[in-house]
Amino acid sequence: MIAIDLIQSTAETLMDKAAIEIPDDYLAGLKAAAAAEDGDLSSFVLQAMLENYEAAKEDRRAMCGDTGTPRWYVKMGNETVIEGGPVALEAALRRATANATNGVPLRPNRVHPLWRTDHDNNVGIGAPEIEYGYEPGGEWIDLITVHKGGLFGTDYRMLFPSDGIQGIKRFFLDSLVAFGKRGLACQPAIIGIGLGGCKDTCMVLGKRAACLRTVGDRNSDPRIAAMEEEFTQLGNSIGMGAMGFVGKSMVIDTHIEVGYCHTGGMQMSVHAFCLSSRRAVARVFPDGRVEYRTDPDWFTDYQRRETVEWQMPKGHEKSA
């Protein structure tokens, strides 16, 4: 059984890490973009960003003043047991969110959509979101926090099979050009694309593609992996860089996730995980061990399974 106090204290540490420490994969991606950028103003902006990450870590202050909307992705093994059960788990994550908002401090962004009530702690109706995934085998729990920012850069379009790859490219470019102007998308960004599913799951897939995969990671379907690389190049050929200035650093990486959809449609969503790509992960074990990392490792073969039954890989059954 995993102790609930350990889950809450780990979650508080994760909130702090996500807000302050840029993940290494994104940092390496941005450094590569800065090295390739030749636009005057865009180059200046990227250098300032690199200095900003250093300042955030040195001073232990949030890397961006808009600390986004904190949310949780929780993954468990099939044998995981939490002290107090799922209700205690959700209470612990809500407490950690409220405490860290005050502690780091984070910006208390979350308000009621109509009455604009602000609890000053990023907790309210439906906030923070808590989403779940499960893996065969294992007694651990993965706590993943993502503080995605931004009101801009996300969009949805109902495409049809006849729109094809060129229709997908069109919407990809439309989203980047539209939200890239004046830098509203806070690019260069990790672009997540959801294809298929239903409208809601299409949005979920695209958001997870942006937030739960690391720079350099490729989809396990080689044809989708090739599209990811092609789209990154396409995005960087627009001629637009950081803040919408002339340049070529728009996309740090592209991640595409698919879900089976209605035979008549081809839903598509686009999401931009901004310059402050805030994510932090920890695996907590029943014996009290906590392992911190920055790769959510969400999209396992199991998460992308296509079949009714799931055949455990050899040797996997015992690893639980």
Binding site: V45, L46, A48, M49, E51, N52, R61, C186, L275
Partner: peptide, 14 residues
Amino acid sequence: LSTVGYGTGALLGR
């Protein structure tokens, strides 16, 4: 005046 990169919160904080 525009902020730079929009994410330089820590630098501005200094």
